[in-house]
Design a protein around this nucleic acid. Structure first.
Lengths: 125, 125
DNA sequence: TTAGGTACTCACCTTTTGGTAAGTTAGGGG
DNA sequence: CCCCTAACTTACCAAAAGGTGAGTACCTAA
């Protein structure tokens, strides 16, 4: 513990190592680590995409959850929604600067999960 | 889309940008991005800790959820459990190499959430 | 006139998640 | 003899998450 150097430090707010119950970061963390939130954000890291495209990429997501997830991410200022006034409707979603910043951290996490999933589930009791 | 350089690339398995429904990485991702999983892993990034200490740090967690979360992480080979044969019992939890590798990605994420939570929730509709 | 395409919303119901409170273990101290 | 402590486990119940299928809007093309 003394000898080992850890690669990343928690912000000063967690100096005592306690994660406070009412901390606002809990809410944000819940949004960005939600089952579908991660996938949508990472999908958007490849560039602007429309609703139907996101639906196709996050395989298995229902329309209800896609709508709900996108709305949450939009409200958090992570995703930008651009509705074009055409018929049939066309809506393009993209990352905001903040969302883009976040995916820089999220993409490696998903990549790690992908790379290690086989090993992890194989060894499981 | 063409002009913008994204900071991280998805692994080749996602080359077409589709996240397959049955992909094993979904399971792993669910574990490591679970509400309490993240906090436990990040807490352990500060070094070996016993049950009661983790319970204190992940403020608001119930004993049931702590037990469940730790068992999942242990089964995934991310956390090591060391039960000392003493009375009253003493059990120390620490990260495995794999878990340590993971927290290198998780800690910055939590730090980002902490740093941005104020801004995000303030701007929310 | 009617069907089709896209991006939703809504009501209803099931499944999953999670909290609470109690019980369990084993040995040491009073 | 009984209670204490720490680390759990279990049964039960409430809450939240999430799926299904229907409905909506609007213009275009057949």
């Amino acid at each position: 513990m003394e000898a080992q150097t850890f690669p990343a430090r928690l912000p000063a707010g967690f100096a005592d190592g306690v994660f406070p119950a009412g901390c606002p970061s809990r809410t944000v963390l819940d949004h960005i680590t939600s089952k579908w939130g991660v996938l949508i954000l990472v999908a958007l890291s490849e560039g602007e995409q429309r609703w139907s495209e996101l639906r196709r990429r996050a395989e298995g997501i229902s329309e209800k959850m896609l709508a709900q997830t996108l709305k949450t991410l939009e409200n958090d200022g992570l995703v930008h929604r651009h509705a074009r006034p055409v018929i049939p409707p066309r809506v393009d979603y993209s990352l905001t600067d903040r969302g883009y910043e976040l995916t820089a951290l999220l993409v490696p996490l998903v990549a790690w999960a992908y790379d290690n999933a086989g090993e992890i589930l194989k060894t499981r009791p």
